[in-house]
Design a protein around this nucleic acid. Structure first.
Lengths: 237, 237
DNA sequence: AATTGTGAATTCCTTCACAGCC
DNA sequence: GGCTGTGAAGGAATTCACAATT
């Protein structure tokens, strides 16, 4: 286990490895080599070994990695052995879709609060049965529900003030869907999902003559990285 | 205008610059220096100048960049001067939220088709008034509606076959929300939005002692980059 | 005087290649 | 023999720093 700072490119890949290990475990596979794992994503086996080596020596020379063992290590490293209680701010289409989304691990990531500013929505239950609360009570909800992650799904103009209130209430991790650059806060990690940037990236590709090219790069298997937000957090307190 | 290949990090930043220029134009600002623009995102002014220099010389020494002029150049570069007709596959929570989403430029990105495999949904209109069509007719819909971008919002197991059918019908650009690594196709650009990776990245941050650190890095203003999919497309035909 | 455009330096990330171990 | 872990090499992205230009 080294102490140098770990790139977010590395931790994103750890998520990918974990997902793959989950599938391998479900399929009853017991060991896997970095080479075999690498082939799943068109990536370099040394990359995988390096990524893992930041955190320990999990492999066995001549054998590879024990699937269940490595899987457990990755869950530890990624902090997935404890729950994360999530509040979604914004009960519009996107917020409600996220509240109902079945895609992420419901065991680990629990959506326990849903807030909005619209009086017509406050007090009524979403499909999940979750009561929509007043965004003005965000700080109180964060404390009451022991929220560790806030998802911002409000219009761009309202996003900054939601971040202000969430961080004032002690939240350290925010997933922002509003198409806006939020001002950085000390000690707070903000990840952005910016659909406009993603679509414009596709548009750029379509506009190029080289748009007829071939994608044969392992990098084409990860989510889209910001050009101005890699979400790197520097210690300073 | 250079011919070297442009990094997706660069093109993502161009989207960010454009958004900022839109705001500046709306505010009546006429010129802006790379330094002033850089301060908006905590990024380096040389970075902005380098990014722009890949495509031409848009600035005026001693003055900076004319906001409207640069804005128009960026719209051209990003291919935003023509429409993109979009089909969303999957009329679940996420697909419907995207169909109703007001966040992106509705002028440029038009959602003109919505498909699903559920017989209970096919034939009924979504809130937008768009009729939900049978995903089995995807190829036909793509041709009829002249779709250039397909958004995949189906469960992970179904995503690969949607990509197969879309690319067989000639689609070159895909935005994938399914939490799965799709197999690369020649000449097709796939951008992934992977909420699991984003949340696990936040979880990792929260699990570290250094989670008390300060984020003061310009990179914290962009969307999340894949660890295994930067969406790079190599020309090969 | 101010600001761009860009070669050089730096920093960061990936890949190679091999010693070390099972 | 096969595979990991890692130092060294290579490549890519960022930042510096300054000549060129208005």
């Amino acid at each position: 286990m080294k102490t140098e700072k770990i790139s977010e490119l590395t931790t994103n890949r750890l998520s990918v490895y974990l997902r793959c290990l989950n599938e391998l475990a479900a399929a009853g596979v017991e060991t896997i080599s970095s080479q075999a794992l690498a082939e799943q994503f068109n990536l370099n086996s040394a990359q995988i070994r390096k990524d893992l080596a930041y955190f320990g020596e999990f492999g066995v020379r001549g054998v590879g990695y024990y699937v269940n063992d490595l899987r457990e290590h990755l869950r530890q490293i990624l902090g997935l052995t404890r729950d994360h209680r999530i509040a979604i701010v914004g009960a519009g289409n996107l917020g409600l879709a996220l509240a109902n989304y079945q895609g992420f691990n419901l065991q680990t990531f629990q959506i326990v609060a849903l807030l909005d500013s619209d009086p017509g929505k406050i007090g009524s239950p979403a499909r999940t049965g979750l009561l929509i609360e007043d965004v003005q009570n965000l700080a109180e909800v964060i404390r009451r529900e022991e929220i560790s992650i806030v998802i911002i799904a409000v219009p761009a103009v309202a996003a900054e003030s939601v971040l202000d209130e969430a961080t004032a209430a002690g939240v350290k991790a925010v997933l922002n869907f509003a198409p806006v650059r939020l001002h950085p806060k000390p000690g707070v990690k903000v990840k952005n999902v910016d659909l406009t940037i993603s679509l414009e990236s596709l548009s750029y590709f379509l506009a190029r003559p080289s748009a007829t090219g071939v994608i044969v790069d392992y990098r084409d298997f990860l989510p889209t990285e910001d050009a101005t937000e890699n979400g790197q957090a520097q210690s300073a307190g």
